[in-house]
C-alpha cells in the first residue's frame, strides 16, 4: 500500500492557521488518546506539537502520526440533536405526566413485559392514582409522541418470474449513521481521523488496534481529502 506520506510536520505556517489546526486537532483527538501499553500516564498528551526535529531521543512511549485534514468540523450547529429533538416539549418528562410515569413506561418497554400483563398490573386497586396511564395502550400512545430515531420504510420487491412480492423493511442508513454520531453515549469514544501509531521513535514498528489505526482509513482519507500537509507527530509518554 503506497501512501503519500510526509514524515516531518509543517515547519512554520501561518500562525493563525497553525492554531486553528491545533484547536481542531485537540477537538477530535483528545478523547481517543490512549496508549495501549502505558495506561497509567496521567497526562497522555505531553506535547502534541513536537515535530521530528525536537522529539526527545529516548524511544519510550508511542508515537502517533495524525492526519491533519481528517475529521475537522465545518461549522457549529446551534443545538446538539439530543437537546433539539426534545425542545418541543413543555415539561421535563415530555409526553409523560410525571417522572414515575416515564420510569414505568421505560421499564415496561425495555423489559419486554407483555401488554396484557401491564394492563392487569395497572388495574390493581392499590396502585390507583399513582400512575396516569390506565393501560398498556396509554403507555404506547405516550411513547409514540417521543421523537423517533431513523424510522422504518416498507417496500414490496417484485422479482421476475415470481408472482408474490417480497417484503423489504429498511431504513435510511444515512439517518442511522446520523443517530449513531449524535448519540452522546459514544461521545467519549469516537475517532474522526486516521492515525498511524508506532511503538518507537524511528517508526520501525507499527501498532494496530482500533479501526482508525489501520491503513484503509488513511488511504481513503488521502483519496477524499487530499491536503497539502499530511501529518503531524505527537508522542504519548
Amino acid at each position: 500500500m503506497n501512501l503519500v506520506y510526509h514524515d516531518d510536520g509543517p515547519r512554520v505556517l501561518d500562525e493563525h492557521l497553525d492554531r486553528t489546526l491545533d484547536d481542531a486537532l485537540l477537538q477530535h483527538v483528545e478523547p481517543m488518546h490512549v496508549t495501549p501499553d502505558r495506561p497509567e500516564s496521567p497526562q497522555p498528551m505531553r506535547s502534541y506539537r513536537t515535530t521530528i526535529a525536537d522529539e526527545p531521543e529516548d524511544d519510550q512511549g508511542v508515537v502517533v502520526d495524525l492526519y491533519i485534514g481528517g475529521g475537522r468540523f465545518l461549522r457549529r450547529r446551534r443545538d446538539p440533536a439530543i437537546l433539539a429533538d426534545f425542545a418541543a416539549f413543555d415539561t421535563e418528562w415530555g409526553p409523560f405526566a410525571s417522572e414515575t410515569d416515564w420510569q414505568f413506561a421505560m421499564w415496561s418497554t425495555l423489559e419486554t413485559v407483555s401488554d396484557n400483563a401491564i394492563s392487569r398490573l395497572l388495574k390493581i386497586e392499590a396502585l390507583n392514582g399513582q400512575l396516569a396511564a390506565r393501560s398498556a395502550r396509554d403507555i404506547k400512545i405516550s411513547i409514540d409522541q417521543l421523537p423517533a430515531p431513523a424510522s422504518f420504510n416498507h417496500q414490496e420487491v417484485f422479482a421476475s418470474g415470481v408472482a408474490e412480492p417480497f417484503d423489504l423493511y429498511w431504513r435510511n442508513p444515512l439517518e442511522v449513521i446520523g443517530d449513531l454520531l449524535a448519540d452522546p453515549n459514544f461521545a467519549d469514544n469516537m475517532a474522526f481521523a486516521p492515525e498511524r501509531r508506532y511503538t518507537d521513535i524511528n517508526r520501525k514498528s507499527r501498532l494496530y488496534n482500533e479501526m482508525h489505526t489501520g491503513d484503509w482509513w488513511w488511504e481513503i482519507q488521502v483519496r477524499t481529502h487530499p491536503v497539502s500537509l499530511y501529518c503531524r507527530s505527537i508522542q504519548l509518554v
Partner: peptide, 15 residues
C-alpha cells in the same frame, strides 16, 4: 455530507 456529532459540531463525512 455534513453530519452533526453529539456536541452539535457538523463534520464533513464520506460514508
Amino acid at each position: 455530507i455534513g453530519l452533526a456529532d453529539s456536541h452539535g459540531w457538523v463534520r464533513h463525512c464520506h460514508p
